[in-house]
Write a protein that binds this DNA or RNA. Sequence first.
DNA 1: TGGGTGTGCCACCGTACGGTGACTTATGAG
DNA 2: CTCATAAGTCACCGTACGGTGGCACACCCA
Lengths: 93, 93
Amino acid sequence: MTIRSIRDLAAAVRGRRKDLGMNQGELADRAGVSRKWIYEFEAGKPTAEFGLLLRVLDALGFDLELTPRRDAGPAGRGDTVDLDALLDEHRGR
Amino acid sequence: MTIRSIRDLAAAVRGRRKDLGMNQGELADRAGVSRKWIYEFEAGKPTAEFGLLLRVLDALGFDLELTPRRDAGPAGRGDTVDLDALLDEHRGR
DNA sequence: TGGGTGTGCCACCGTACGGTGACTTATGAG
DNA sequence: CTCATAAGTCACCGTACGGTGGCACACCCA
């Protein structure tokens, strides 16, 4: 699934944890964080540190993939991205 | 690419930023973080907050994907680490 | 030679992250 | 009705994240 927000990740983590039959405490131990961390993260806390998150995802058997965003265009554009257009778009903010 | 460590991500971010012709300051502005954050993150700081990271990845046009780990192929090195071993290792700190 | 730009790095500071420990509220088994 | 377990929540606290502003060095180009 594509992660667009912390809540996306939180839901995925919680679902996966339950699928694996783990409770918050077990996951916390395996990932090396506190149960509080798990609880708050699953509640959508956006300030969680990335390093700890990686440990949790690892403990859950998740892989994290990074890919250049493919513009949801009608016809799938090639891998050639229009950098200027992209820049202008962002410049607008 | 698959993210296994903060350094993986840091390298990807730095490479992408340069490809887009941005300097640290520009990326920082677009992502709404400080230049110090960009600098430290690209240097591999593992404690960066996930919320800020999402903003930076968004500013760079990156998509983040979460997938169940593909079972390590047999050809792979002895990465047959089980969770308990990982557990013990993490416990050490 | 000098100016401009990009980056590494520093000190300082307010804020809040994350850990610990405990309490409370379901929920379920016996 | 108990007892046990899981999850939500709280207070307390040390630590350090992240922002601001600045400085120095390395370039590059006129």
